[in-house]
Design a binder for these strands. Sequence first.
DNA 1: ACCTGTTCTTGACACCTGTCAAGACAAAAC
DNA 2: GTTTTGTCTTGACAGGTGTCAAGAACAGGT
Lengths: 208, 208
Amino acid sequence: MSSSTSAPPRRSPADKHDARRNQLAESALKTLGEVGYARTSLREVAQNSEFSHGVVHYYFHDKLELILYSVRYYKAQCVTRYDGVVADSTSTEGLLDAFAAKLAETIREEAPMHRLWYDLRTQAMFEEPLREAVAVIDKTLEDMIWRVVSRYAELAGRAPVMASGPAYAVLDGLFQQSLLAHLSGSATALEELSVQVHALMPLLLTRD
Amino acid sequence: MSSSTSAPPRRSPADKHDARRNQLAESALKTLGEVGYARTSLREVAQNSEFSHGVVHYYFHDKLELILYSVRYYKAQCVTRYDGVVADSTSTEGLLDAFAAKLAETIREEAPMHRLWYDLRTQAMFEEPLREAVAVIDKTLEDMIWRVVSRYAELAGRAPVMASGPAYAVLDGLFQQSLLAHLSGSATALEELSVQVHALMPLLLTRD
DNA sequence: ACCTGTTCTTGACACCTGTCAAGACAAAAC
DNA sequence: GTTTTGTCTTGACAGGTGTCAAGAACAGGT
């Protein structure tokens, strides 16, 4: 053990260590997105990296620790996804178009990560150890969506008719169905999602 | 092989066979609801029955066949869950109360089966063989919800503002969040669901 | 009684899993 | 150069998995 932390060297103390952890996290995310939570094995994670299967246990105490670290690592980059939409929009129509387009885009380009998230959230219904982490991430997603809804209400000069929780829930319901349809080969799923979001959002505000 | 089908005896031809299949399906559902799709093993299914682990392969060709048979077996009984609500209601308020109460009741009493369904639907995002069966069941659930929404619109003298697909999606989003909260130990999740459903349903109809 | 076909149990197979320990390797410290 | 330290590989462990075959147990018909 060194002086303060239990980190390896002194020159690049925990940086190298964290860099490897992030590297393994990305390999894990690749595997998780491909085969899902249950079928993800540490050996396949290592095989998706340049290391051997033993190294995972050197950087992570547990399989659970690896997976939670990986998902947190990914979701930390996602929660700002719609912040540009919120910042750049100057009209309700503009925000709606940009938001719907972004939703469709992220399904098109990051479907494996999204299905992984739903997988993890569902597994949390069965495995207690997952629940706290899932709840935290779900809350950040709820806040992310709420920033969009709030800005939308502001631009419309009206007020939301429901709290952030149910607003997130209904939008997430649409998103999830669209993701499943898209992954099932539907060619029109993303367009339909855009139409549905355009129809739903005004309902979340009071009448003028 | 007997005369026409490949069924076992002649007296009770396929009845005994189907009875055993249903019996095993119920044992499978118990296991699936407890530990989820991925962690369900044929040996544990058998252990939840009065038979040994080999018998599963006698009545089902595959693990997949057992699981799909079991889930279909269960969902066949669920699709009429809200039909009484639809039939008995004579006012919008009455239908809303009965519907919301039924939603909360089924979470309270059949949470394991519901999380199993979400598990399966999510796994369908990863495993192609599940998709068709999941799509069929999801459609029957969508129709079930649509009967409620249609009746609600009828009683209100208005028309729904969205198609059955998105209507099911948004209600399912609320339901799923409520289920997760309930399983995570929230004592108020079910009451909140009732409030949210009461708030959402009117938004699904045109203004008077 | 015997025979026949169905039903169920037992045991095995090949494979995969998380975990971990023992040692190889390299790089830095002295 | 030698020692020490951190990094990584290899190989093994104990356990669990789906699948299936061989045979026991049981039924009913003759």
